[in-house]
């Protein structure tokens, strides 16, 4: 689908973002086997934006993460990068995983995506996207980057996450390469 890879046009009076993004939604069928094919089929493109104004125009109409049903995910990725391990940009990558107790996810997700859109991570081209996952007992947010082996980058993403999420002490953070995730 062409829409997935093309940035929308912006008007001159809008505030351009460093990157254009696509927002995806997925819902897992609990109990069903999750093959790569079914994962791909479950990904629905919600919208795209290239400016701050276009972002708010989309975001304001979305259901807040805390109001989503269990087993749903939002994936916010740079245009041209599909939120899948198999995408070229993700193949050597990994993700920071932050597990949140119930009640925190909407605020944390908003802080995370505002930091991503505003280029607050300061890791060059390394960020691929972010995911929020609504689960039964906890919620999870992840930040995906391109090069899992780049310790300077992954440390900087971790430190930025700690700062922008205002995580309670003891909140667990874990880095996983996509290769490890594939094996599990």
């Amino acid at each position: 689908d062409k829409d997935e890879v093309v940035a929308p046009e912006i008007n001159p009076n809008e505030h351009k973002l460093q990157y254009a993004y696509a927002l995806w939604y997925s819902r897992r069928n609990p109990g069903k086997q999750n093959s790569i094919q079914s994962y791909d089929r479950n990904l629905k493109l919600v919208g795209r934006f290239a400016s701050v104004e276009q972002f708010w125009g989309l975001y304001s109409h979305l259901t807040r993460p805390s109001e989503l049903t269990t087993h749903t995910d939002f994936h916010l990725f740079k245009i041209g990068i599909k939120p899948m391990w198999e995408d070229e940009a993700n193949q050597r990558g990994g993700k920071w995983i932050v597990r949140l107790r119930k009640g925190l996810v909407s605020r944390c997700w908003e802080n995370l995506i505002l930091a991503m859109l505003g280029e607050q991570f300061m890791v060059g081209e390394e960020i691929c996207g972010a995911v929020v996952s609504i689960r039964f007992q906890e919620d999870i947010i992840c930040v995906w980057n391109k090069t899992a082996s780049d310790l300077g980058t992954t440390n900087r993403i971790r430190d930025t996450l700690r700062r922008i999420l205002h995580l309670p002490s003891g909140a667990s953070m874990e880095y996983k390469t996509h290769n490890e995730s594939l094996k599990n």
């Binding site: 008007n11 009076n13 809008e14 505030h15 351009k16 973002l17 460093q18 701050v52 104004e53 708010w56 125009g57 304001s60 802080n111 505002l114 930091a115 859109l117 505003g118 280029e119 607050q120 922008i164």
Partner: peptide, 21 residues
């Protein structure tokens, strides 16, 4: 070129601008 950096407060201020609706 220069990286386009926006602080959280700046982004929040644009939330209610007419072209964000």
């Amino acid at each position: 070129g220069t990286r386009i950096v926006y602080e959280r407060a700046f982004l929040m201020n644009l939330r209610n601008s007419p072209i964000s609706q």
